[in-house]
Design a binder for these strands. Structure first.
Lengths: 190, 190
DNA sequence: GTCTATACTAAGATAGAC
DNA sequence: GTCTATCTTAGTATAGAC
């Protein structure tokens, strides 16, 4: 379990990007958080943007994995949707630093990197739409605008990044449970 | 209706901050969008941050006004909540550039300016909580976590800034109607 | 693979002429 | 109130010694 210099730099980048944003973060800041000189950054990473891309890609893939595992964990459509929203919100609250980079620094990527990551985002949206479609087909959900509702469910999880604090009163589990409950309310047959 | 240099600079700042973010925007960029030299900025505004503060304050106050007018427009609690969510989402979609600055550049303000604007944010949350409390008291709404549900309703409107495009298929009114519908579903007695 | 030193560029803001 | 010119600081990234 040796922590390589490369990994220490990635951890430092996560800390700095989440705290100050990509543009406001300097490579000197990242280097000093990792206990290195500014020059050491470039031995392990090509550029500041490549650090961002590495963090953003890993974060997006982790978020997709969370939602796919949740989808696979339940067979009944309502329980499945609950699990997906609960775990997606819990992941964002628990990993709020990486989450902020994933959700708010997308525009700072190069065109090529942005295109690559956009595919992961489309997959996440598609999984949520699938879950709603299954529920409607089974007759346990009533959804007017299916893509719009899928997007709204993702919004609940993602927007918590704007206000969530790990030191606040609400735990990731509290928020996740609320969002799962709201997801059921938004989609159930009346 | 003469447009002053000060106003032209504010418009240019809105354009630039919304497009590239506060930190990535240069005062030279703002000046050239307003058709002026870099030095002209400082005749009309103290600093780059004071431009941000002016835009952010006006935007926050406009958003608060929208939600208060919607609250006053309907007496019946469910219709009132619908109106509030509908107008709040429509405002964000219609004013997405200012909206992005309002919601995403809060951290770039100075401590004093941030504290002043935080009060407006608290007022917006309070109005949404009031609306839910009225509905519960009237027996037409069932809300488990009242502050959490208020926050979730605001999240729907605010998170549209992350993905909304004025040139996309959905109009501000489409999105607003969807969100108003979801608000009713989230809060109605089952 | 790490450092010190630095090249090169560009930022926020100001001086002073008109 | 606008300009050109510039001060000062600081950024990304590289060179070259160890």
């Amino acid at each position: 379990m040796t922590v390589t210099a490369r990994e220490r730099l990635l951890d430092a980048a996560v800390e700095a990007f989440a705290e100050k944003g990509f543009t406001a973060t300097t490579t000197r800041d990242i280097a000093s958080r990792a206990g290195m000189s500014p020059a050491a950054v470039y031995v392990h990473h090509d550029s500041k943007e490549s650090l961002l891309f590495t963090v953003s890609r890993a974060g997006h893939l982790a978020a997709l994995e969370v939602i796919e595992e949740a989808a696979a964990s339940e067979a009944e459509p309502t329980a499945r949707l609950q699990a997906m929203v609960r775990e997606f919100s819990a992941w964002h609250a628990t990993n709020s630093r990486v989450g902020r980079i994933v959700q708010y620094e997308f525009a700072a990527l190069t065109d090529e990197h942005r295109a690559e990551i956009a595919e992961v985002r489309r997959a996440i949206e598609a999984r949520m739409q699938d879950a709603l479609r299954d529920g409607v087909a089974a007759g346990v959900m009533d959804v007017g605008d299916l893509p719009g509702t899928a997007r709204a469910l993702l919004s609940l999880s993602i927007d918590l990044l704007r206000w969530f604090s790990p030191t606040g009163a609400q735990s990731p589990q509290d928020i996740a449970a609320l969002h799962a409950d709201l997801a059921v309310r938004m989609t159930r047959v009346h």
